[in-house]
Design a protein around this nucleic acid. Structure first.
Length: 435
RNA sequence: GGUCCCGUCGUCUAGCGGCCCAGGAUAUCGGGCUCUCAUCCCGAAAACACGGGUUCGAAUCCCGUCGGGACCA
């Protein structure tokens, strides 16, 4: 029993003329998943031949976005490194009379009859009548090479086995096939992915709002959630919605990619992000929110570190249920730190409630350790003695301690905020109400 | 305009001839849980673009129409 040892080699080839957008990211992801699934090689090739529009800044942004998504590459190169190879290949076509010069540009001779069929891994066989195709330029009069020519030379030289890209390139494929043949290079397999569209069903672009991958990082999305979301745009595995990166790698296959285009809508992304936050290890998640809390200004590194890893993890575990993003989580996590509360609600205290709050304070003072169970016991006892119900003070305490009327279980909240902060804030509420 | 691709709930999708008067998820609405909100649980509404075939039987195969998209001009 022998298996043919075809090492998969795929690439993602963005042009550095802007940030990495979600469409490009999905193409990169599918290539990456395919490579990792088949233990092949994933190459990042920057198509920077268009000197006037390519920028170093774009390259940095793309690289950063790829890193954030966790799409690591095994080889890296730039198209401009291959200019010599393009020249040599183009001259060979000229020498063989497969191309000719006309008004300074070099043109490839397209056969006038027969048909060319693309054996697409996703679409099946797609036929083109050669007579429909016209001769096309491979080198411009200024000496630069045309896209369709450069990619073929690059892919052939890199030994790319599968060209997986957006189906906006499907119509270019027969031309590229001619070039592979003319150059005497083996044909790779092709797989054309359906496009991602905006809500108006046209090709996704900047005017559709946020499409930059890094913008989603800024908004507090987890890369794992983004990857999960992008993968599900076109790819599926039965009814499963939530996937870890590892599951994606092991389950991925080209056959399970759909053939119709998908509309990019963020609705599910937020839900998916929450699911990933809920599933995350609290300590790791705490690490992920950290920059968002530091950004808010109030929390310094010293304040953060003083809070303690264990307590922060507990806070994260408690507060993440009502947070769709790291930004939301950071917002509510501020209650854990000894900082002034951004009170969204005012504490409303009448004489009766003031007495209850005083009683609660007194009951909390000796509680040690300040666990949810101990807090609940102390509070209920104090209330029972006065014939009061939890309802009577729960919201008052919540607002006094968190500045908000919504949040997790009161006892859990109080426990994680800690006795000192809780007592201080309850006192402050009494003082404020007196004034 | 030419060529090519695509067409299942608003959106992402399952479905690869009978398991489908179409399943899941999200979003929406209603209910439950509860110290609040959220999570969570339960429920409702919501789709096979249309018309012809093929077949005992079609969302699934074929043809046409319409619609959308992309590429090239």
């Amino acid at each position: 029993m022998r298996r043919e040892a075809v090492m998969v080699r795929v690439r993602f080839a963005p042009s550095p003329t802007g940030y990495l957008h979600v469409g490009g990211a999905r193409t990169a992801l599918f290539n990456w998943l395919f490579a990792r699934h088949s233990q092949g090689t994933f190459i990042l090739r920057i198509e920077d031949t268009d000197r006037t529009r390519s920028t170093e800044e774009s390259i940095d942004q793309i690289v950063e976005a790829m890193r954030w998504l966790g799409l690591d590459w095994d080889e890296y190169c730039r198209q401009t490194d291959h200019s010599d190879a393009h020249q040599v290949a183009a001259e060979s076509l000229l020498d063989a009379d497969l191309a000719y010069e006309h008004e300074g540009a070099w043109w490839f001779r397209v056969p006038k009859e027969g048909q060319t069929v693309v054996h697409d891994e996703l679409l099946g066989d797609v036929s083109f009548q050669n007579e429909q195709l016209k001769d096309f330029a491979i080198r411009r009069s200024d000496g630069t090479f045309v896209y369709n020519f450069a990619v073929v030379v690059d892919d052939a030289d890199a030994g790319i086995t599968h060209v997986i890209r957006g189906d906006d390139h499907l119509n270019n494929t027969p031309k590229q096939i001619f070039l592979y043949h003319a150059l005497g290079r083996p044909l790779p397999r092709f797989g054309h992915l359906p496009m991602i569209l905006g809500p108006d069903r046209t090709r996704l672009s900047k005017r559709h709002g946020v499409t930059s991958v890094l913008e989603y990082r800024r908004r507090g999305l987890l890369p794992g959630a983004m990857v999960n979301f992008l993968a599900r745009l076109g790819w599926s595995h039965g009814d499963q919605e939530i996937f870890t990166r590892e599951e994606l790698v092991s389950l991925f296959s080209l056959e399970s990619i759909g053939s119709s285009s998908a509309v990019f809508e963020e609705g599910k992304l937020r839900w998916l992000n929450q699911q990933h936050m809920k599933a995350a290890d609290p300590t790791r998640l705490a690490h992920e929110v950290r920059p968002f809390l530091l950004e808010r200004g109030g929390v310094t590194e010293a304040v953060w570190d003083a809070a303690g890893e264990e307590r922060l993890a507990r806070g994260v575990a408690l507060l993440r249920d009502r947070s769709g993003t790291l930004v939301d989580l950071a917002e509510v996590m501020t209650i854990l730190f000894p900082l002034p509360l951004s009170a969204e609600e005012k504490v409303a205290l009448d004489a009766e409630k003031r007495d209850l709050v005083r009683a609660v304070i007194a009951a909390f003072e000796p509680v040690d350790p300040f666990t949810p169970e101990a807090v609940e016991r102390a509070m209920r006892e104090a209330l029972d003695e006065r014939g009061a119900k939890l309802k009577d003070v729960a919201q008052v305490c919540r607002i006094a301690v968190t500045g908000r009327s919504v949040g997790p279980s009161l006892f859990d909240t109080l426990a994680v905020v800690g006795r000192d902060l809780v007592l201080g804030r309850l006192q402050a509420a009494l003082a404020g109400a007196t004034a």
